[in-house]
C-alpha cells in the first residue's frame, strides 16, 4: 500500500471536513481505521475509466411472485468528481426507451435527468429522492448510485471470518441527513477489499435490509464486479435480485456521451 506524497496531500484536502469529527468521535482509532479501509477499497476500484453492462432485476413480493426488469448501464469515471452514468430501460415494455442520466457528486447532491420517449422530453428531476425505491425494487437510489468515500463517516467494528475469507466489518454513517439510513454495516474481504454484505439500518436504527454480493469476477486484472446482488427487506419480506451481465471496460466513452442530448439518442 504505497502512496505518493501528492496522493496523501489529496486525501488530506478531500477529507479535511471529516478530520474534526474524527478527532472528537474517537480516541481509540476506530474512526481512522474505518476511513482507511474505505479509502483503500476506493483506491483499488479507481482508474477503471468506463464500463458498460446489462442488468436483469427480479422483484419478488412476500408471496414469492416475481416480476422482471431489464436495463442497460453505461458509467464514466470522473477524475475529481463522482461518476456519470446513463441507464436505459428495456422492459417492462411500457417504459421501454426511458433513459436516466446522473452526475454523482462527492459532497453536493447528484444531478439527474429523465428522458421520456413518448414526449421526446428530457426532465431535470430533483435528486432528493435518494431514499426512494428504484423502479419499485428494494434498492433505493442511494444504494445503486456511485459510492463515494465522502458520502459517509466510518468506524471500524471488527474482523470476521466466513466462507473461508477474512473480513473487515466497518460501520458507515451517511453524511446526508436525507438518507434513508442511520447506518450501514459493511463486510469487505481483507484480501481484495470487495464488499460481500451490507446491512442497512433505518432511521430508527432497526435492521431494514441486507444486501449480499456473490459471483465476483475480475476485469482488466484488477477490478472486481459481483454478478449477483440480492437485497432482502426484512420489514416487508420483499426481495430484489440483480444479475449483471456483459461487463465491458475501456469502451472509450467520453463526457459527450453523458449529456442531455446524448440521453435523447440513447438506445
Amino acid at each position: 500500500m504505497k502512496r505518493t506524497h501528492s496522493q496523501w496531500l489529496l486525501s488530506l484536502v478531500v477529507f479535511m471536513p471529516l478530520i474534526p469529527a474524527a478527532a472528537f468521535a474517537s480516541d481509540d482509532g476506530t474512526t481512522q481505521r474505518g476511513l482507511e479501509i474505505a479509502i483503500e477499497a476506493d483506491r483499488r476500484d479507481s482508474g477503471f475509466g468506463d464500463s458498460s453492462s446489462s442488468l436483469e432485476m427480479t422483484l419478488r413480493n412476500r408471496h414469492g411472485e416475481e416480476t422482471q426488469r431489464q436495463l442497460r448501464n453505461k458509467t464514466l469515471e470522473m477524475k475529481d468528481d463522482g461518476d456519470k452514468a446513463i441507464i436505459i430501460f428495456d422492459t417492462p415494455r411500457d417504459v421501454k426507451g426511458t433513459a436516466f442520466l446522473s452526475f454523482t457528486h462527492k459532497v453536493k447532491s447528484d444531478d439527474q435527468w429523465l428522458y421520456l420517449p413518448a414526449l421526446k422530453r428530457v426532465k431535470r428531476i430533483a435528486s432528493r429522492n435518494k431514499s426512494g425505491p428504484f423502479m419499485g425494487s428494494e434498492f433505493a437510489y442511494e444504494d445503486i448510485s456511485s459510492q463515494e468515500v465522502e458520502k459517509y463517516s466510518y468506524r471500524f467494528i471488527k474482523e470476521e471470518q466466513f466462507d473461508g475469507r477474512d473480513h473487515f466489518v466497518i460501520e458507515r454513517d451517511p453524511v446526508d441527513p436525507k438518507s434513508g439510513y442511520k447506518r450501514q454495516l459493511v463486510w469487505l474481504d481483507q484480501q481484495e477489499y470487495r464488499i460481500w454484505k451490507i446491512a442497512y439500518y433505518d432511521r430508527k436504527d432497526t435492521l431494514l435490509k441486507t444486501l449480499v454480493y456473490s459471483d465476483y469476477h475480475q476485469y482488466l486484472n484488477r477490478y472486481w464486479r459481483a454478478n449477483i446482488m440480492e437485497m432482502i427487506n426484512h420489514q416487508t419480506g420483499k426481495s430484489t435480485r440483480l444479475v449483471w451481465r456483459d461487463y465491458r471496460f475501456k469502451n472509450g466513452f467520453d463526457e459527450r456521451e453523458f449529456t442531455r442530448s446524448a440521453l435523447k439518442k440513447a438506445r
Binding site: 431535470r124 430533483a126 435528486s127 432528493r128
Partner: peptide, 9 residues
C-alpha cells in the same frame, strides 16, 4: 429556465 434545488424545481 429551470432551477433545481433540493426538493424544489
Amino acid at each position: 429556465l429551470q432551477y433545481t434545488y433540493d426538493s424544489w424545481l
